[in-house]
Design a protein around this nucleic acid. Structure first.
Length: 472
RNA sequence: GUCCCCAUCGUCUAGCCCGGUCCAGGACACUGGCCUUUCACGCCAGCGACAGGGGUUCAAAUCCCCUUGGGGACGCCA
């Protein structure tokens, strides 16, 4: 008997991996890693009509991006029908299940009546004692206990008692012979030795049914931990209505997976006042004790802030790797190397996403700068012509481009014209980047290099001269 | 309708289990200021919450009950 923790993540491949699912996956993965246990990936595709290969691929891709790896699987329920069949037969043989031939119409009527009389819409047990044999179109129902209570012991919620009269004889095998969710999960969790089930609390109501199944099968009930759900800003369950909610959509919007992981885990779990966590720290500190009990609203603003923080904290090399695809998206082919790293160093504090970072980096990679209209008209004016020329000449002469070398040059020009740095920095900025905001002048000069700076300065001088000659 | 869960700033949360150290702490957002060659970053300050009502107690955000509010589940989906 091994006491190792075994958790699992069982996505249903009927769409992409959304934020709530990602968080559940993360909790399970983190808990397994934290305890030195195993993490199993299982694809729940018993509903063949809704499951697609594309969804499976999308989910795996999202997990990979998040850095979630698994020790076993992915298993596919669709390939395990014979296993479920065996367990269903066991239940049938032990008298814990029976065939039911009630029509959909009858079932619907029974539900309506139950609702009407102020009760829960559940099956009335019509076929329960009929001792029916199999026949075309029959389903198999679980013969649930009629009296007593089923106790759920939850790591997060404590003990929850369900009155068995609230539960009914749910279907475990459809008329087409395939197993239903509750049966399949239980059988899988048993056969895969899953002993810790961490999932959304929308499954809390399924838990007593599943416990009854474990008991009927004579198997040990695993440990449950129902985590609160993730809600949209309107406080309802996260859905397509809330805009981007696929994990990969955030990747494409320029989010760092470490930030996504940090945010998702922190939404529902806490470690005192700490907000920023690296993946390793999460593995080290994550536990079930500090998972909260109330649902949390997904806050994109906070994710964004955290993303900026993770970008600032990352190394230029690591950032470069993630930035390159966003650069190519803009038609910029940059390779890892000192130039890129230096570029990143100047913009990492000003970028909240990789999309922003690519935008901020663009000017470093163009031959000729394109001026923003307002920027040019405001700063590239004749008054600045002489200072710009002097700086250009001085730069052409100079060797080093470090701040100690640059400052005296600027100082001399400033003194000569009675200008403050601000007066000269803005035109310079426009000349070098085309915009009115950018990294610091001195750092840009150093990164761009003498040739590029001089060339851009000359472009700007030419621009001013041509505009003013024609106008005046 | 029935059952289950939940309830601290706008949002994420610390504190609650083991009542007093909490006229409630942190973060995001917002506002103001500092720094300053722009934009950021950073720093400082401000705004802002124990859902309501009853108990228990010398003392309750913390324990109990009720109300209200929110969420979820009731399917031959998962």
């Amino acid at each position: 008997m091994d006491s190792q923790t075994v958790t699992r993540f069982p996505p249903s491949p009927s769409g992409y991996l959304h934020l709530g699912g990602a968080r559940t996956a993360l909790f399970n993965w983190l808990y397994a890693r934290h305890t030195g246990g195993r993490f199993v990936l299982r694809v729940e595709d018993t509903d063949v009509s809704r499951s697609t290969k594309e969804s499976v691929a999308a989910i795996l891709e999202a997990l990979e991006w998040l850095g979630i790896d698994w020790d076993e699987g992915p298993y596919f329920q669709s390939q395990r029908f014979d296993v479920y069949k065996a367990y269903i037969n066991r239940l049938l043989a032990s008298g814990n299940a029976y065939y039911c031939t009630c029509s959909a119409e009858r079932l619907e009527k029974v539900r309506q009546e139950a609702m009407q009389s102020g009760g829960k819409p559940k099956y009335d047990g019509n076929c329960r004692e009929k001792g029916l044999e199999w026949r075309e179109g029959a389903v198999v129902r679980f013969k649930a206990p009629l009296t007593g209570t089923t106790l759920v012991s939850d790591r997060i919620r404590g003990h929850i008692a369900f009155d068995n009269t609230e539960l009914d004889d749910f279907i475990i095998q459809r008329s087409d012979g395939t197993p239903t969710y509750n049966l399949a999960v239980v059988v899988d969790d048993i056969t895969m030795n899953i002993n810790t089930i961490i999932r959304g609390d929308d499954h809390l109501n399924n838990t007593p049914k599943q416990i009854q199944l474990y008991e009927a099968l004579g198997c040990e009930v695993p440990c449950f931990a129902h985590v609160p759900m993730v809600l949209g800003p309107d406080k309802t369950r996260l859905s397509k209505r809330h805009g981007a909610m696929s994990v990969t959509a955030y990747r494409d919007m320029g989010y760092h997976p470490e930030a996504m992981v940090n945010y998702l885990v922190r939404l529902g779990w806490s470690h005192g006042d700490q907000e920023f966590f690296t993946r390793d720290e999460l593995v080290e500190k994550f536990n079930l004790e500090h998972v909260g009990r109330s649902a949390g609203v997904f806050d994109q603003e906070k994710l964004l802030a955290l993303n900026a923080e993770h970008i600032r904290a990352a190394s230029n090399e690591a950032l470069a790797e993630r930035l390159i695809p966003f650069l190519s998206e803009k038609g910029i082919e940059a390779a890892p190397g000192d130039y890129l790293y230096d570029v990143i160093e100047t913009i990492k504090n000003r970028s909240k996403t990789f999309v922003e970072m690519a935008e901020a980096a663009a000017f470093y990679f163009v031959e000729h700068v394109t001026y923003e209209e307002k920027a040019a008209s405001k700063f590239l004016k004749p008054a600045i012509l002489a200072p710009l020329k002097e700086i250009t000449e001085a730069l052409e002469q100079t060797e080093g481009l470090d701040q100690e070398t640059l400052e005296p040059i600027f100082q001399r020009v400033m003194d000569a014209h009675g200008l403050k740095l601000g007066k000269i920095a803005q035109p310079m900025r426009v000349a070098l980047t085309g915009k009115t905001f950018s990294p610091g002048i001195f750092e840009m000069i150093r990164v761009l290099g003498k040739a590029a700076v001089v060339s851009r300065l000359k472009d700007a001088i030419g621009y001013i001269e041509s505009h003013h000659l024609t106008i005046s």
